[in-house]
Amino acid sequence: MTTTALTARNDAARPVGSDTVLDVDGLCVEYAGAGEPVRACTDVTFALRRGEILGIVGESGSGKSTLITALTRLQRPPAVTTAGRVLFHPQDGEEPVDLVRLTPRKLRALRWTSLSIVLQSAMDALNPVMRLGAQFVDALREHDRSMSHTAAWEEARRLLGLVGISADRARSYPHELSGGMRQRATIALALACRPELVVMDEPTTAVDVVMQRQILAQVLRLRREFGFAVVFVTHDLSLLLELADRIAVMYAGRIVELASATDVYRTPMHPYTRGLRDSFPPLHAPVTRLEGIPGSPPDLRALPSGCPFADRCPAVMERCRTELPLLEPHGGRSVACHLHDEGIRP
């Protein structure tokens, strides 16, 4: 977004460790049903470093939620993971585990202590008939059987304090809190068992802009404090430019570009990424250019054999119609576009 924001991110948000926490390889997810399956995620591959914030951006319907529910094994029928693996590397140097194939018992032990999630609508994500604190307490005590009831409530109040919610709010019911408070509470909840990875699905969509900025600031601060890695999903690229270390751009179920936030902002390589970047006005410049991306994404039941973006691409070439561009490395970043094939320059 602004250069100041970008600089701040680069100074403050350096990854805590350099080793990998999550290794996603060739993940495919389909919605099975009558007729052709909906191929909501195809061949998704990326790695996440410890303490890194990876942003995933894409239009609504591009498969972001499908991807992260598959990553966390929270998907429900008719969604099925048809291929790929999700290797999780526990901190204590144990063997990595494949979340796709892990037994339910082992997975349950891993949940919240290693891997937690923040959902889009905090109103819907909190149990309306349970006090806020009780929804922390059950998670805390599930994973630490030795923790007393009193200690768990104390911990719940402390966690709420982390996101600026006063301790006595723990006794409130979700509907008694404002939208912003609820959303911050679900972030505090996600941190309850000190996970190494927190997955966030559009956590700021349901709140106003001021609250959105507070939440982002808190995520950055907490990440600095606790060192967890974040997969942050949103349809708003401008938000990721401030928050994320790296950004993956999704289109029609595929990652079409994966690069550092700075690179995505300064030198987007994929025409779709460029379109996304240009569709919001720079804050400190006069609004001279404001381009949306005309057209709509392809039907995921009947994907074209070539580039899925071809119908909307301003730079479409002949081979784009027939040959699917794959995500290829390109000097520390990756892009899936024929413009960047060997020998062709944009």
Binding site: T72, L74, R76, L107, R108, A109, L110, R111, W112, T113, S116, I117, L119, Q120, S121, D124, A125, L126, N127, P128, M130, D138, A139, E142, H143, T186
Partner: peptide, 19 residues
Amino acid sequence: DYVLLAQAKGLSPARVRWR
């Protein structure tokens, strides 16, 4: 979503189902 989140928390299936 709150049932999904309860599962994500790793609660026992019985607790997710009843509570």
